[in-house]
Structure formats: C-alpha cells, structure tokens
Design a binder for these strands. Structure first.
Length: 119
DNA sequence: ATTCTGACA
DNA sequence: TGTCAGAA
C-alpha cells in the first residue's frame, strides 16, 4: 500500500515538512509518482518509527543518516550497523549516568532546605 | 484540495 | 521545525 505525504504524515505524526527534511538528510529514500509527488510504502512506517526512536535517544541526524545509508545497502552492512548501535548505546549510558548524578544533586539540595525548615 | 521546491524566521 | 510564495 502506498501513501501520499499527507496520509503518511498522519500515520507517523510527523509533519510534511519534517518528512521532506528527513528525505533531504537521507534518513529515508522516497519514491515519486509520474507527477513527481512522493509516495511512502507500508514498509516505510516501521522504518520511520525506528528513526523516531533513535532520535528519542538523542542520536544526531548525521549519525542516523550513516545508519540509514548502510541499511539501504542491505544485509552486508549489518555488522557495521550493529557497531553504530553499540557505540550509541555507550553514549546513552553516559548520558543516563550524567542525569542520575544531576538528580542526586538536586535531591541533596532539597534535603538541606527541608532540614532547615524543620527548625 | 494537495503537494512541490526554495527561501527564510 | 514551521511557514510562505508561486507553480503543477
């Protein structure tokens, strides 16, 4: 099944300009009809969803592009894609450690104030 | 009515 | 990311 950019936009909760931007950044390859209009496929849905998940982890567009380009090259690039994901996992874990620390600092400061007010 | 490209906030 | 113009 194919979808116009308007339909696909509603399906993915991404605006049409954002979808065009992702295409320009080579995150997704989009086919065109005879009138040069974009059409997205059913398979594109899962792919876009995964891109959104990568974005949610803070992966920059440039890195997602690297991954996407490899993906479009087929199964021969699976090892390299795995390496990208494993590396990014390390980055995310570091970010998590940073926020765990930030949260701790905040909680400690809150305790100080609470003890002050009890007096 | 909908989408396209390019330019710009 | 979003918005606007002018064309298809």
């Amino acid at each position: 099944m194919n979808y116009s950019i308007g339909q696909f936009s509603k399906l993915t909760n991404l605006s049409a300009p954002t979808l065009r931007y992702y295409e320009q950044e080579q995150l997704i390859v989009v086919s065109r009809d005879s009138g040069r209009r974009r059409y997205y496929t059913t398979e594109d849905i899962d792919w876009i969803l995964f891109i959104k998940k990568l974005k949610d982890t803070g992966m920059p567009i440039k890195a997602i592009r690297e991954y996407a380009v490899l993906r479009y090259q087929g199964d021969s690039t699976i090892k390299r894609r795995l390496a990208i994901l494993e590396n990014h996992k390390l980055v995310v874990m570091q970010e998590k450690a940073k926020w765990d620390n930030n949260l701790q600092n905040l909680e400690e400061k809150i305790k100080v104030y609470q003890h002050k007010l009890k007096k």
